[in-house]
Amino acid sequence: MTARINYLEFPSQDLAATKAFFSEVLDWQFTDYGPDYTAFAAKEAGIDGGFYRSDTPARVATGSALVVLYTAQLEALQDRVIAAGGKVSTPIFAFPGGRRFHFIAPGGCELAAWSE
């Protein structure tokens, strides 16, 4: 039997701020399903997924899985994250095969972005 990841869900302490942030920074579009859930599409994000209202943020330091985005323009994406109200939690650093940084979106979840 095989199975593959085809949907991701993230907690958000502020769905409105989360939607505004990812719309501005990554051009993601959202579909609301009630007051406590909003979904994004693979067309913009690379995979279908959503954000649900939660008081608990997803952070690597507390054992959360880390979703890593790819971009060919790492510095430009970091600048967009900051300009849109995100916080860089780990500045750009090198690793074998590339460079990356981690950030906290306004709704509280931590993601990373990498480039060659």
Results as ranks from 00 to 15, higher is better:
Phe51His: 05
Lys43Leu: 04
Thr18Ile: 12
Thr71Ser: 10
Ala16Asp: 15
Arg99Tyr: 05
Ala84Gln: 05
Gly86Cys: 13
Ile104Asn: 06
Phe22Val: 03
Ala76Pro: 04
Glu9Asp: 14
Val68Tyr: 14
Ile5Gly: 03
Ser12Gly: 10
Ser54His: 10
Gln13Glu: 09
Glu9Met: 04
Asp79Lys: 14
Ala105Tyr: 01
Thr90Val: 12
Trp28Ile: 01
Phe40Glu: 00
Phe93Pro: 00
Val81Pro: 06
Thr90Asp: 07
Thr71Cys: 04
Lys19Gly: 04
Pro57Gly: 07
Trp114Thr: 13
Glu9Gln: 14
Ser64Arg: 10
Ile5Val: 15
Lys19Pro: 00
Ala84Gly: 13
His102Gly: 01
Phe21Arg: 04
Ile104Pro: 05
Ala65Tyr: 10
Ile82Met: 08
Leu77Asp: 02
Gly34Glu: 11
Glu44Trp: 00
Arg99Asn: 05
Leu77Trp: 11
Glu24Trp: 01
Phe103Glu: 01
Phe30Val: 09
Ser12Phe: 11
Ile5Asp: 01
Ser12His: 08
Thr2Pro: 05
Gly63Ala: 04
Ala20His: 14
Ala41His: 10
Ser54Tyr: 07
Thr62Ser: 15
Phe30Ile: 08
Ala72Lys: 14
Phe103Gly: 05
Arg80Met: 08
Gly34Thr: 08
Tyr52Met: 13
Tyr7Ser: 03
Met1Asp: 10
Thr2Ser: 15
Phe21Lys: 06
Phe10Gly: 03
Phe51Cys: 00
Gly85Gln: 10
Ala45Asn: 06
